[in-house]
């Protein structure tokens, strides 16, 4: 009869009720949401891609805007789900007590963490789609219709990066706590996973190290899909993302239980 924090998470359809709730709130706050998830990466893409691109010429045989756009699809997804999994989830868990309200219904914590994860990944997918669309409009997608396969990969990437974000939320006493994760985890991945420059520019030791960053594997799949370059080690990259996602989701569920079970 004793429950364990480590017991296997259950996946139930009840989680969709939370996805639906978050969607309805998001629809009401569309303006600020679009500015954050779409506007910011768009400015990066145009500022760096066009501006810097004029200075540095082709990278890996691609115009810099084309090279960068494929990396930004991955990094914007990561940033979006990290914000959602930390700031927004914390808001619903602590000050707004939305989770408390749901826990008085047949929903339980497993459903809530699953619902939040699916919702964050959907928001990540939206960010990825927006960048893909803008890049296509600027002629920066050379892979043709194959580029659409980048979107399911971005969704997987979103799922796997929501786990650590929610796990951080389970530890957080306030919003300030998230600075650690952003500065120590998100920003380094943003800079060193091949979003802005090819990894073979890095010293050999660094090249080995960056293979441990999950975002590296997302970029390694999304870039060839969007630019038409040959895909290599697809299974390995997807397995790393899926494995990272499963482990981090499980940890998120366990940490949330540790915080909230009475």
């Amino acid at each position: 009869m004793n429950r364990s924090h480590w017991q296997r998470p259950r996946f139930r359809r009840a989680a969709w009720a939370l996805v639906q709730r978050n969607f309805l709130v998001w629809r009401k706050l569309l303006g600020p949401a679009i500015v954050l998830n779409f506007g910011e990466p768009l400015i990066y893409l145009l500022g760096l891609g066009l501006g810097l691109g004029m200075l540095i010429g082709p990278v890996d045989g691609l115009p810099y805007l084309t090279f960068l756009a494929s990396g930004m699809v991955a990094s914007a997804t990561m940033t979006t789900v990290s914000f959602e999994g930390m700031y927004s989830v914390f808001t619903r868990m602590v000050p707004q007590k939305t989770w408390d309200a749901m826990l008085a219904t047949p929903m339980d914590l497993d459903d809530i963490v699953l619902g939040e994860t699916l919702w964050a990944a959907l928001k990540g997918l939206l960010s990825a789609s927006m960048i893909l669309l803008v890049a296509a409009l600027f002629g920066a997608v050379s892979g043709g219709w194959m580029a659409l396969w980048a979107l399911p990969v971005a969704f997987l990437l979103g799922l796997s990066f929501t786990g650590p974000a929610i796990a951080m939320t389970a530890l957080a006493g306030s919003y300030d706590f998230f600075n650690y994760y952003f500065v120590l985890i998100v920003t380094p991945m943003f800079m060193f996973s091949g979003v802005f420059f090819p990894l073979d520019q890095l010293p050999a030791g660094w090249q080995a190290f960056v293979q441990f960053l999950p975002l590296t594997h997302a970029v390694a799949v999304i870039r060839p899909l969007m630019t038409g370059a040959p895909l290599t080690a697809l299974g390995l990259h997807l397995a790393v993302l899926a494995g990272f996602g499963l482990v981090s989701f499980y940890l998120a569920v366990v940490m949330v239980r540790r915080r909230l079970w009475v």
Partner: peptide
Amino acid sequence: PQADNLDPDFTVRENLFMYARFF
């Protein structure tokens, strides 16, 4: 509950409909 945990972004009626979804 002791402390209010209504959904601040929804209207009164939407709060009731949304809560029904959780059931």
